[in-house]
Simulated scan of single mutants.
Amino acid sequence: MLWRRIVLSATTALAVAATALGAAPSAVAAGHNYVALGDSYSSGVGAGSYLSDSGDCRRSSKAYPSLWAASNAPASFAFKACSGATTGSVRSGQLSALTASTTLVSVTAGGNDVGFADVMQTCVLNSEATCVAAVNTAVSKMNGSLPGSLSALYSNIRSRASRAHVVVLGYPRFYKLAGTCIAGLSETERAAINQGSNTLNGVIAKQAANAGFTFSGVADEFTGHEICSADSWLHSVAIPVSDSYHPKAAGQSGGYLPAFRSVA
């Protein structure tokens, strides 16, 4: 299933082979040097409890990288994810944390490249037809320029952290259709946004597989917890506005953390 774990990274496969052959324990087995890269879904926007030194990046102690590090005590932990990051800004501003000794990397990127925030603003403020057209424009970018941008990012990650096990995480499906919402977007708009999310995750999964990375989707974890469900783990339109359409603390701990932990 596309949302699940698509491919074991080459690093993990080699570690398994080494164990089977009775080789000495690797650096991966001895203790992780973990680097968390990506955009607001990795920094934890919407989860609150932002770290005082993170500024506009809004890195949260309740984001899945912080939660995983707190429970696994890696040898080192560099939390570089930043709100608003694109594949390009991850490449230019976050990859300096990667070294030859890095053993574990997580990353979310791609949503800002295709203008996700602008799509949601358009859908909230404009007509159904305008919303659907905005989603279709974003999908065109997903199928057009995004694969190359992701490929370049993943190549740079691999070149800087050649031994690392790299986990690429996806994005939630945002709406429960025929759910409890009685106002807001139409079912047509919600369905279009969900399909856009499906397409985005598919593109990311394919590029992750091409790079030999592990893709871990979160749509299954968020099923039953979408917007318009009885127990949403995602903000709808919120104050502050930047929290809108981001996981709550429950979405980080109940959605992203299990998706990462299962393959880390």
Rank of each mutant, 00 (worst) to 15 (best):
V132T: 15
T19H: 12
A133I: 04
V132I: 15
D231N: 12
N210C: 03
N210Y: 01
S216T: 10
P172N: 09
A24T: 13
R5P: 10
T108I: 13
A134F: 02
G170M: 03
D56Q: 10
P147H: 01
L14T: 11
V7F: 13
L125E: 04
V28M: 08
L234D: 03
S149F: 06
S145N: 10
S155D: 13
V105H: 00
S232P: 01
C82D: 05
G55R: 06
H225G: 00
E187F: 07
T87S: 12
R5D: 09
L21M: 09
S140Y: 09
R58H: 12
K80T: 03
F260N: 06
G251A: 00
V28H: 07
A192Q: 02
Y64V: 08
C123S: 10
I227H: 00
G55I: 00
A63N: 06
A24G: 08
F213V: 00
A97R: 04
N201L: 08
T103K: 12
T180V: 15
E128N: 14
W68R: 09
F77Y: 15
Q94M: 05
I239W: 11
G84A: 02
G22T: 03
S159L: 10
A117Q: 10
T130P: 02
S229P: 04
Q252Y: 14
D113K: 05
A109H: 00
